[in-house]
Design a protein around this nucleic acid. Structure first.
Length: 843
RNA sequence: GCCCGAGUGGUGGAACUGGUAGACGCACUGGACUCAAAAUCCAGCGCCCGCAAGGGCAUGUCGGUUCGAUUCCGACCUCGGGCACCA
């Protein structure tokens, strides 16, 4: 027989599915719906193995659900705005739009070769005018709904490139491109009011049961809710100073008050105090990088002001400016209790401030308890604290809060570390912010009738700064309100905005409105979302926020965009290096002999390095295209699903790929050998081993796919193939086994499965064939093998009819040779029989 | 520093709610077929002792609970991830 020709078969079936429009999703179906979505790709130019893994997993779910009778939405689009297009424009002189759409065309072609069951009629790119026009509409609506506002913000400013840099673009305090020392600048920027939903975004995490616990935890920490008390100090200059604390119980251990260098009071004082101004400048000079923060010394400056202790006006605390107090959290001011806060302790030790323990661990003597280099943050009883003495921490907190609240000095407050989302970017290849700045009317949103604000096609990327800002006409606009000359906002939106609602647009990509509520309410939430863990926080949090915004605006009734989330692992590969840690060498350039790696066709040995994520810098990238050409899409898909659990990193190996290819051929042989089977539809009878293996496999694979355990599903299918090697070679049971196998590999290796289905004599297509059902009578054995243990050690096994009574099992087990030998004549003290499982004899 | 997660053969990994540890794949070894190779098929494959029958030891380490622990509890070690002066 001919070997299976993957190339020919894959092309043929892709055309056939296409001709039948087999994967169209229907917005008016009576079937239950299933929305399966993988995080859409950035059109960098080529697909990589990570894409292959991601889209294969999604495709398996989509095809599985379709076979189970669901109306499936499985779309594809492009996250198409972003910096690489601008870099290409500057470096190569191309138009970013052309560059992007060319990349999309190339990647679409590569993705289609994988045979994905996608409704391509819904494809769009976020840089399509049709998409970003609607995003602009949403932005103005969010603005009117109070979910967007403008405010001053500190940004990383590159003085050479004259542009704002993202934190990731600042390396050791310098711009990644220019190398210039980055400055902190205050700019007026647009923000999304994500903090309006802090509590809701946090609480709703509990209901996202089909999200990984890890991701929920990361989001919880990111939102960072903490309960505490906000109260005010009376200052010696007559003003009040608001502080936030989670430890009001330690108030009698206070030895100073501290304010941020960015606090308004600091600014005010610095105007009359040159030394303070210098101190503030010094604080700002110290970078915001992790390393800088970790090693930064605590620094303080005594303002000369004092603050009255809230419970004793005669007790004066010095007011210090301290570099470790952040303006962005709480009120930007604290009270310092050195004995019970590590930072305060370091600060106090440096500036010789008192350290008075007020929470004493159980069993310690309050008079003897001393805090040295480590602050005590554990539980205990209050001491040295007047009316609080003897209380536990929780009661003391409540008591302080109650008293200060009664005096009108304090309020119980919840703080979050979550900040509002700064969405302005000084970039040209993005969604223009549809706002106009008028000297007379202030900020005016561009009215619906004037949308979209289109990106000009003639941007000059050789200029410094934002090409959109430098464009000769773009920024000149008429004020929509008064008609006078005004300035258009030349910033664009963070590309995370683009990906915050694309899943809602997929529900109806033809709708005039940004989101069609009927379609969105039918399809949303996404039933299964799949993507990388790197989006655990930002993208997923922004999308959750945006969906709440869409709800508020009436576009949908759901709040949570993704009911099920799965985060898949990366694709890794061995690295190769010439000797002595020299140049990296690509996998294509080496060959392996006896576990050693050599330069192809030579005896020059190369070092095999660590297994790492595929990356250009380590040159350990394997292009999907080459692999598809060599083994076909099905073998590659099979590899991606085999062996490694989907959430873990998978190592790509040539040997593994060859193994997958061999399995493709093995299935094809099994089908070919089955020429003389009874015709399709012949019912099998009886209960042979093969039939039992078939139905057990169906039950197991179904369960595994339901739970995204692809590696186990693959193992079950191998086991069934092995069972076929031993079972009946002909007859209806053989056909049943083969057909079950073909139907089960359908979602995983769809082209091979279609070919096999046709070869088995079917005239219908496998994509239109329902998922097989397991016969419960055949998934259960009527003979069970008991393990027989003596003192917990396995000594024998013994078959019994299922449900045999305990007494019989016990009596027979005790007669076994191995048991008699192990007992050495001793009488059993106790015999434990676990029905249909195990016997343990205790001697 | 704080918070998570994971440690099982040469290797990727299985093991349902505590019940025969190592399914299935890869690699490897031996054999069959072949002039030969590829492909395919058959067999073997945790470690130690033993000709064998059989026995002992094994799921990072040490302890605990239990008739029985990869699974539950405690301590420790190693690796990976997240956050990072958040008051």
């Amino acid at each position: 027989m001919a070997r299976y020709n993957a190339r020919e078969s894959e092309r043929k079936w892709q055309d056939a599915w296409n001709a039948r429009n087999a994967f169209a999703a229907h917005n008016d179906s009576q079937k239950p719906k299933a929305y399966v979505l993988e995080m859409f790709p950035y059109p960098s130019g080529r697909i990589h193995m990570g894409h292959v893994r991601n889209y294969t997993m999604g495709d398996v779910i989509a095809r599985f659900r379709r076979a189970q009778g669901f109306n499936v939405l499985h779309p594809m689009g492009w996250d198409a705005f972003g910096l690489p297009a601008e870099n290409a424009a500057r470096d190569k002189g191309v138009n970013p739009r052309d560059w992007t759409y060319d990349n999309i065309a190339a990647m679409r072609g590569e993705l289609k070769m994988l045979g994905l069951a996608i409704d391509w009629s819904r494809e769009f790119a976020t840089c399509d005018v049709e998409y970003y026009a609607r995003q602009q509409k949403l932005f103005t609506e969010f603005y009117k709904a109070g979910l967007v506002y403008r405010s001053e913000a500190d940004v990383n400013w590159d003085p050479v490139d004259m542009t704002v840099l993202a934190n990731e673009q600042v390396i050791d305090g310098r711009g990644w491109r220019s190398g210039a020392a980055v400055e902190r600048r205050k700019l007026s920027q647009w923000f999304f009011k994500i903090t309006a939903y802090s509590d809701d975004l946090l609480n709703a995490l509990d209901k996202l049961e089909r999200w990984p616990e890890k991701v929920r935890l990361m989001q919880r920490n990111w939102i960072g809710r903490s309960e505490g008390l906000r109260f005010s100090f009376d200052l010696s200059n007559g003003e009040k100073l608001d502080v936030f604390t989670t430890r009001p119980d330690t108030l009698f251990g206070a030895s100073f008050a501290a304010i941020s260098p960015d606090h308004p009071l600091t600014q005010e004082l610095a105007q009359r105090d040159a030394k303070l101004a210098a101190f503030v400048a010094e604080c700002r000079r110290v970078g915001t990088s992790e390393a800088a923060i970790e090693t930064a010394e605590k620094m303080g400056y005594d303002t000369g002001l004092t603050a009255a202790h809230p419970f004793d006006a005669n007790w004066r605390l010095p007011v210090m400016v301290a570099n470790f107090v952040l303006m962005g959290y709480g009120t930007g001011a604290i009270f310092g209790c050195p004995a019970h806060d590590q930072r305060d302790l370091e600060f106090a030790n440096k500036y010789k401030l008192p350290v008075l323990p007020v929470v004493i661990p159980e069993g310690e003597d309050p008079k003897a308890f001393h805090v040295g280099k480590e602050a005590y943050t554990g539980p205990g009883r209050l001491a040295n604290s007047r009316f609080l003495d003897g209380l536990d921490v929780a009661s003391a907190k409540k008591d302080v809060a109650k008293r200060l609240e009664a005096e009108g000095k304090g309020t119980p407050t919840v703080n979050y570390r979550l900040r509002d989302w700064l969405a302005s970017r000084q970039r040209a290849w993005g969604c223009p912010i549809p706002m106009v700045h008028c000297a007379k009317c202030g900020i005016v949103p561009v009215p619906q009738s004037d949308l979209p604000v289109k990106l000009p096609d003639d941007l000059d990327f050789s200029v410094r700064g934002n090409p959109l800002d430098a464009h000769p006409t773009f920024k000149h606009a008429k004020c929509p309100s008064c008609g006078g000359a005004a300035t258009r906002d030349t910033d664009t939106l963070d590309t995370f905005v683009d990906s915050s609602w694309y899943f809602a647009r997929f529900c109806d990509t033809k709708a005039a409105a940004p989101v069609n509520p009927d379609a969105a309410n039918y399809w949303l939430p996404v039933d299964q979302y799949i993507g990388g863990i790197e989006h655990a926080i930002l993208h997923l949090l922004y999308a959750r926020f945006f969906t709440r915004g869409l709800h508020k605006l009436g576009y949908t009734k759901v709040d949570e965009p993704f009911a099920g989330l799965f985060t898949q692992g990366m694709v890794t590969h061995e690295t190769y290096q010439s000797h002595n840690g020299g140049d990296w060498i690509t996998p294509d350039e080496i060959e392996k002999r006896d576990g050693k790696a050599f330069l192809k066709g030579t005896n020059t040995q190369v070092e095999i390095g660590a297994i790492e994520k595929m990356s250009k810098s380590k040159k350990n990238v394997v292009a999907p295209q080459r692999i598809i050409d060599a083994y076909g899409a099905d073998a590659v898909r099979w590899f991606m699903l085999s062996d490694t659990p989907p959430e873990r990193d998978i190592e790509w190996t040539e040997a593994g790929a060859e193994g997958c290819w061999r399995f493709v051929q093995r299935i094809w042989r099994l089908v070919d050998e089955a020429k003389d089977l009874p015709p399709p539809g012949t019912p099998p009878e009886g209960a042979s081993d093969l039939r039992r293996a078939t139905h057990k496999a169906i039950a197991a694979v179904t369960d595994d796919l339901e739970n995204l355990r692809f590696n186990r599903a693959v193992a079950q299918i191998y086991a069934l193939a092995n069972a076929m090697g031993m079972g009946e070679k002909d007859g209806a049971a053989r056909r049943e086994a083969l057909e079950a196998m073909v139907r089960m590999i359908g979602p995983m290796m769809p082209h091979l499965a279609e070919s096999a289905w046709a070869a088995l004599g079917h005239t219908t297509m496998l994509v239109e064939t329902p998922w097989p059902k397991a016969d419960a009578a055949l998934t259960q054995d009527n003979i069970v093998t008991y393990a027989v243990q003596v003192n917990g050690k396995l000594r024998a096994t013994r078959d019994f009819a299922k449900g045999t009574d305990k007494a019989t099992v016990e009596a027979d087990a005790l007669k076994l040779d191995a048991v008699v030998r192990a007992l050495e004549g001793k009488a059993p003290k106790r015999v434990i029989v676990v029905p249909d499982r195990i016997v343990n004899i205790v001697a």
